[in-house]
């Protein structure tokens, strides 16, 4: 017995709920005067090291806070707490990315009062975080000089979705034969005109240009 098929139009974005929640977070951050930065990269690029130094430097004259996403441990939050800035861990329980809902629930019982800048350290992953808006003002993709210049070509969505690229560990550039021109060309191929900063959280090289983004706000 053949049954007839009937087509029903739906037209709904799959991540529509996440996007709507991210929008409401964005308005809430705007009202509280909080500038939100979403840091994305592969594991080992130096997000935590950068954030450690960034928080330590900025806490002198700015109210800053950080939310740190991690699959299982609280190691990063412990490291970052030493800066004196309020830090909250989001353990994703194995989830490979942060979603707006996780940010919202972390903020429910932890609202860093009057924060001017809130850094969100995403889970180390160059694929999945690209799809999830967290309500941030600035999405920063980090790439270290040790990772290979073709990363942007291998992971176009995340580089395409970023507002700023940071090339980290530039103190090691010479030792690893880093090809600056090739990386810049590859970034340009997936996100023409994307601003790029080069820095090293360890040596401090290039840190001022990065910190000025927040000092001058």
């Amino acid at each position: 017995m053949a049954k007839g098929l009937r087509s029903i139009e739906i037209r709904e974005r799959v991540l529509g709920k996440n996007d709507a929640l991210a929008e409401s977070l964005r308005s809430r951050f705007q009202e509280s005067g909080t500038y939100v930065v979403n840091l994305v990269s592969s594991p080992g690029t130096g997000k935590t090291a950068l954030l450690e130094r960034t928080l330590s430097e900025l806490t002198r004259d700015r109210r800053v806070a950080a939310l740190v996403g991690d699959l299982a441990t609280e190691n990063d939050a412990q490291r970052l707490s030493r800066s004196g800035a309020p830090v909250r861990q989001i353990s994703t329980g194995g989830n490979c990315h942060l979603e707006a809902e996780m940010v919202q629930s972390a903020l429910q019982d932890w609202e860093p009062a009057g924060s001017e800048v809130l850094f969100i350290e995403n889970v180390g992953n160059l694929v999945c975080p690209a799809s999830y808006d967290l309500g941030e003002n600035l999405r920063v993709v980090l790439l270290s000089v040790t990772e290979g210049e073709d990363k942007p070509l291998k992971y176009p969505p995340i580089f395409h979705s970023a507002n700023l690229a940071l090339i980290t560990k530039v103190d090691l550039a010479e030792a690893v034969g880093f090809d600056r021109a090739a990386l810049r060309a590859n970034i340009e191929a997936v996100n023409p005109g994307l601003p790029v900063l080069e820095l090293s959280a360890r040596s401090g090289e290039g840190m001022d240009a990065w910190l000025d983004l927040f000092r001058n706000r």
Binding site: I10, R13, P157
Partner: peptide, 14 residues
């Protein structure tokens, strides 16, 4: 090129 959208479904009648 960034779409991720459910556009429609087909259901069996009755």
């Amino acid at each position: 090129g960034t779409e991720l959208e459910v556009t429609a479904m087909e259901v069996e009648d009755g």
